[in-house]
């Protein structure tokens, strides 16, 4: 896709590329490598930053933490914030797999990870991620998005800017009534 290369200085081996993600208003190549639950953990030179399921994380936590690279965990829609709350300090990425975009539990998961559990790493949405929900997702604390394959990046980037005014507080802004008061 146009503009996908060169936005990151991370060296990506061709064998493990494939994902492009939207971050900070642009399409960039993903630097994370997904490791299947039954695959061995790769050596650091092959994949520095690895993404695993929550089950794998619980099983191989010690090995993941000592191998040197960064660790990310992928949650499914039905894995709510409480399920990973105690571990967020160890994680540089939490990815939430959106099962169906109309199942909106993940919005609360994202907010709680940010405001309740203090997660400061990258929060990413993958799966059934469509342009028209990106604005809401970002407000709930997501900062990167893997768009569903058949969707247009230009539409997504435009949709992220749908509104310049928001009423209620979320992870990005205080409620308008607190900002109105300031003039």
């Amino acid at each position: 896709m146009p503009g996908a290369d060169g936005s990151l200085n991370v060296q990506v081996s061709p064998a493990i590329t494939g994902r492009s993600i939207i971050r900070d208003g642009a399409l960039v190549r993903d630097e994370w490598t997904w490791i299947d639950d039954d695959a061995p953990l790769p050596v650091l030179t092959r994949a520095r930053d690895v993404l695993v399921s929550s089950a794998r994380w619980r099983r191989d936590r010690a090995a993941l933490l000592t191998r040197g690279g960064r660790v990310g965990v992928r949650l499914q829609t039905d894995e709510l914030a409480a399920s990973i709350a105690d571990d967020v300090g160890h994680l540089a990425l939490i990815e939430i797999h959106v099962h169906k975009f109309v199942d909106g539990r993940f919005y609360t998961t994202a907010r709680l990870l940010r405001m309740r559990h203090g997660f400061t790493g990258e929060l990413r949405a993958t799966g059934d991620v469509l342009p028209d929900q990106l604005f809401f997702m970002r407000r709930c604390g997501f900062d990167s998005f893997e768009l569903r394959q058949d969707k247009r990046v230009e539409t997504a980037l435009r949709a992220l800017e749908s509104f310049s005014v928001v009423y209620q507080g979320a992870e990005d802004q205080a409620p308008l009534y607190r900002r109105r008061a300031l003039g």
């Binding site: 109309v102 909106g104 609360t108 907010r111 209620q168 009534y177």
Partner: peptide, 16 residues
């Protein structure tokens, strides 16, 4: 009205 504003495009509760 206060509830209207709070609920309008509430990002967390658009897909209940």
């Amino acid at each position: 009205e206060i509830i209207r504003q709070w609920s309008t495009f509430h990002p967390e509760f658009a897909f209940l």
